[in-house]
Design a protein around this nucleic acid. Structure first.
Lengths: 161, 161
DNA sequence: CCATATTAGTTGCACTTGCAACTATATATA
DNA sequence: TATATATAGTTGCAAGTGCAACTAATATGG
């Protein structure tokens, strides 16, 4: 075991690490922009909307409490309220009271919402694929996925108001 | 070898890839939030400001044309105008006309600006370090950096209005 | 069962961002 | 050199976001 040299306390952040971080942030911001650009170009709404629709679409019965939804898409609660409101105005989502918790509100995706998400997906997908995944081979993709799982597994997830 | 199923054209995006992407986005958003939270908690401005100060601080003589600056921090030009304006109001940056190009404007970091950036850095660093880099060993970090270089090298960089 | 604390969600206000139109300078073309 | 085109930066307006204060309902602890 190469053991103790694999330490990483906050005091010595190497150039490699700094660059890795900066690079990662920038790369992702670029890609995010690119996806949004493509969506907009074709007259579709932005990724926020997509994410919400996606979380609802994949959920048990197409609905989630605003609270849960917010945690999944990493939105603050007041923004969830407002985003869901906008989605409702477009008929992509409907809102209902929670029967067991008087405070609760469900957002439920409509057929129109599901349809829109389905249409947006290939644009999203192709862009990410072309600009990102096509750079990696299978082995690297697996490595990448490992990274990600490690990050996720390590309790970065609390946060959110 | 499981062979030919390991293809990567835009038509078949595997679950692995999808999850990798989603995971990466979320992980980074979480981390980004966390850094902002820490900064705010200690009374510092948000990462946008940091990024601008950082780009100026590291640049030749502490100044950049708004245009260049915008490209580096991935801000649209109208947002650069306004962000620099706010920074100027706080005395963190000064603006000067470009002598050779009548359209051009330089943003130049002040001592106060440099000082602020220096103070913000350890907070930023510690947070990323704790939540992110501590999950990887040296070898993985190098791999990660390779990924990033590949992405960057591959022309994701145009974009920006 | 009452008082208190917590949680879900909403809202007003100030600030930030996106879009499109605009000014002014620089570059290219004829 | 006159004309068209492109580039740098700014600005008005509409929309989105952050913060703090708020309402209403639930959970907790005596």
């Amino acid at each position: 075991m190469k053991g103790s040299k694999y330490k990483n306390n906050a005091k010595n952040w190497t150039d490699t690490e700094t660059e890795a971080w900066m690079g990662l942030v920038k790369a992702q911001q670029l890609l995010y922009r690119k996806v949004e650009e493509e969506l907009k170009k074709k007259g579709y709404p932005c990724l926020n909307w997509y994410d919400v629709l996606w979380e609802l679409d994949r959920s048990e019965d197409g609905s989630l409490r605003l609270n849960d939804l917010g945690k999944r898409v990493l939105f603050d609660k007041y923004n969830v309220t407002r985003l869901v409101q906008r989605l409702e105005e477009e008929g992509l989502v409907s809102r209902t009271q929670c029967p067991v918790d008087g405070r609760g509100v469900f957002a439920c995706i409509t057929d129109k919402g599901r349809k829109l998400r389905r249409e947006m997906w290939p644009i999203y997908q192709d862009t990410v694929k072309k600009s990102f995944f096509s750079k990696f081979n299978k082995k690297e993709l697996k490595e990448l996925k490992n990274f990600i799982e490690r990050i996720q597994a390590s309790g970065l997830e609390e946060t959110v108001q």
